[in-house]
């Protein structure tokens, strides 16, 4: 069973979102990193790039798979986790901590489309069938 911290919000496409005042941090869930396997390469967005909800904003590569990251919140990128460029395995080791992908200044305050931990858990369980 993969870990799903209670304090975060989630997208249906397996990204997590953490709110800190006027900035949100975005990463992929433990479940997602498990499904991808050992990551070997990460392509991150450029700082100052703007994204709408659901837009492709990053690419993760493992040996056997490549996955797009879909932006769970609309906003402007303010910081990227450059550590990942040389150490993509941080996403596998610590998906909710040192494996964060990038930070956004959101365009909107409300996030009606995001799931809470319980809802996300249910979705993961339903995908298993």
């Amino acid at each position: 069973m993969s870990s799903v911290p209670k304090k975060l919000q989630y997208s249906k496409t397996h990204e997590w979102v953490r709110e800190d005042e006027d900035i949100v941090t975005i990463g992929i869930t433990d479940h997602a990193q498990c499904m991808l396997g050992d990551l070997v390469y990460v392509e991150l967005p450029e700082v100052e790039a703007g994204f709408e909800i659901g837009e492709e904003c990053a690419v993760l590569e493992s040996v056997k798979a490549a996955a797009d990251v879909f932006c769970p919140v609309s906003g402007e990128v303010v910081e990227i986790n450059t550590l990942l460029l040389d150490h993509p395995q941080l996403i596998n080791e610590d998906p909710y901590g040192r494996g964060w992908l990038f930070r956004l200044r959101p365009f909107e305050k409300e996030r009606p489309e995001l799931l809470d931990a319980e809802e996300y858990n249910k979705q993961v369980a339903s995908e298993a069938h």
Binding site: V40, Y41, S62, V63, K64, A65, A66, D68
Partner: peptide
Amino acid sequence: LQAREQHIRRAR
């Protein structure tokens, strides 16, 4: 670097 290739990334 096979993740660049068609059998994994298909249309991309």
